[in-house]
């Protein structure tokens, strides 16, 4: 997962700087080639919109940094949903993508880890249950019968965690809540709860914390009712077959070296991240156990 211009690309399937050539090239590549050995083609990096009104600036900076640091042209591809990103990654349309821990665990065999972001010194984050600021709630039991906003069906923090929490109580969202809907963006969950459209929402703790700095007037209307335990931060992943390629090596190097370079530091400061680490797939065991729990419950 990363970073997206919710205003700019908010809802529609839209490529970042799409060009016919790139589309054709991508489509052809997916059929002809299975790996990342596409000499002369731009490196395609996928993401979904995450937050922030400054996404445009962030994306420009990220693309600029990666292009320089990797020494190849990098193309950022924004999709509305994790599903689109994951499927394009699996099908080879994307060389790498910032995805969520949930699809990474779900497609563990097809995907390989490139790097994991470090936030507040750790490669992990939490999921929050949000309610409006004037409401008293400390547990998911208090949210029964709500209209509940999820972020994305393929999001760990914005869906899976809450679903697993309900599964532990032998319940399902559609039964527990009066109504649920997906906003396809963590920031949108915050907006929905703040506006009163939803009475509660499942949101990425990292996004909410960053928003308290960048848009305090928005988060002030909400409060955190419950925090999950710490889980692996949404990683940068690539398809398993591509993992050993030189381009992925360069990407990993560029990500890990980010704090050492001026543009890289400005990207990190926009993301409020400390940097990237190689990461251990075991980080995502907590998510994997939730996937198991949900699957077992049905």
């Amino acid at each position: 997962m990363v970073v997206g211009a919710s205003r700019l690309t908010g809802s529609i399937d839209q490529r970042w700087k799409p060009s016919r050539r790139a589309l054709l090239a991508g489509a052809t590549a997916s059929v002809v080639l299975s790996g990342g050995a596409r000499a002369g083609q731009p490196f395609r990096f996928g993401s979904t919109p995450v937050f922030l009104t400054s996404d445009l600036q962030l994306l420009e900076a990220l693309q600029h940094y990666l292009t320089i640091a990797m020494g190849v042209e990098v193309q950022l591809v924004l999709k509305r949903t994790y599903q689109e990103i994951t499927s394009q990654l699996l099908s080879g349309l994307l060389d790498a993508a910032w995805i969520c821990g949930f699809p990474f665990v779900a497609y563990r065999r097809e995907l390989d880890l490139v790097a994991v972001p470090i936030w507040r010194g750790k490669p992990s984050y939490q999921s929050y249950l949000l309610v409006s600021a004037d409401r008293e709630a400390a547990d998911i039991a208090d949210l029964r019968g709500d209209i509940h906003a999820f972020s994305d069906p393929d999001s760990n923090s914005g869906y899976l965690v809450t679903r697993a929490l309900l599964a532990e109580r032998a319940s399902k969202p559609q039964d527990f809540f009066k109504r649920t809907f997906f906003t396809y963006g963590h920031r949108n969950v915050v907006r929905a709860v703040a506006a009163g459209l939803a009475q509660s929402g499942s949101v990425d703790g990292y996004v909410w914390e960053v928003l308290t700095e960048t848009e305090p007037e928005l988060t002030r209307q909400t409060k955190v009712a419950w925090r999950s335990d710490w889980m692996g931060f949404p990683p940068i992943a690539t398809s398993a077959g591509n993992a050993a390629s030189e381009a992925i090596g360069r990407l990993r190097r560029a990500l890990i070296d980010m704090p050492t370079e001026q543009t890289g530091r400005s990207v990190l400061s926009l993301l409020r991240l400390d940097g990237f680490a190689t990461g251990d797939p075991a980080l995502f065991d907590g998510i994997a156990s939730r996937v198991e729990l949900v699957r077992a419950f049905g």
Binding site: I147, A149, F181, T183, A192, L197
Partner: peptide
Amino acid sequence: EDIWEVFDIIE
């Protein structure tokens, strides 16, 4: 019946 998108548009 996409509640969020309807809200986003009318807001």
